[in-house]
């Protein structure tokens, strides 16, 4: 009803633990520049929500950092590390940019898609894996590169990928 944005008190959607972690980041910036903590805040919120962000959660971050919701959406949609849809337990990010492509990332992608039976942006039926195409991961020296969770895996071949996936819970 009101045009006031963001919704007042929507920050309560964030857990006390998340808020404590966000406060740690807010403290790093001058008091009138709370919004500088938006990237960290989104990351913390995303991890607490099983790897993805809902509109309500982004609104909550906006309220907590006293930003307009659209400014938070701008950040969350700009960076590839934020997810706006549910992801699998293991998020497999395959670099498809130039260096990796020259070193065989297309072959990796084909292999992964066949093996898991999903396309980019999709989750396996058992919710264990999701596949994502990303731009340069900054590790061209080890191309082709795949990021799974927080780990980088370099100089990959389909066989190596099979090995890695087999080792994941």
């Amino acid at each position: 009803m009101s045009t006031r944005m963001p919704k007042p008190n929507s920050f309560q959607l964030l857990s006390a633990d998340s808020r404590a972690q966000i406060d740690h980041w807010i403290a790093k910036y001058p008091p009138d520049q709370k919004q500088s903590a938006v990237m960290a805040a989104l990351m913390i919120t995303q991890e607490a929500n099983g790897g993805w962000l809902t509109t309500e959660l982004m609104d909550a971050v906006a309220d907590y950092l006293q930003m307009s919701p659209i400014a938070v959406y701008e950040v969350a949609t700009f960076y590839s590390m934020y997810e706006l849809k549910p992801v699998g337990k293991h998020k497999i990010c395959v670099c498809t940019n130039l260096s990796c492509m020259l070193r065989g990332s297309e072959e990796l992608v084909d292999h992964l898609q066949k093996k898991l039976g999903v396309d980019f942006g999709e989750i396996t039926p058992d919710k264990k894996f999701s596949l994502k195409s990303v731009e340069c991961l900054g590790a061209c020296g080890g191309a082709p590169v795949v990021q799974i969770g927080k780990n980088y895996y370099e100089n990959l071949t389909p066989a190596k990928v099979d090995e890695i996936l087999a080792g994941l819970e």
């Binding site: 659209i70 949609t77 700009f78």
Partner: peptide, 17 residues
């Protein structure tokens, strides 16, 4: 602030999200 630019590069969209 009602309008914003969401997405990136060629996927940028102006809207209210």
């Amino acid at each position: 602030q009602e309008l914003g630019a969401t997405g990136r590069g060629e996927h940028t969209i102006i809207g209210t999200f």
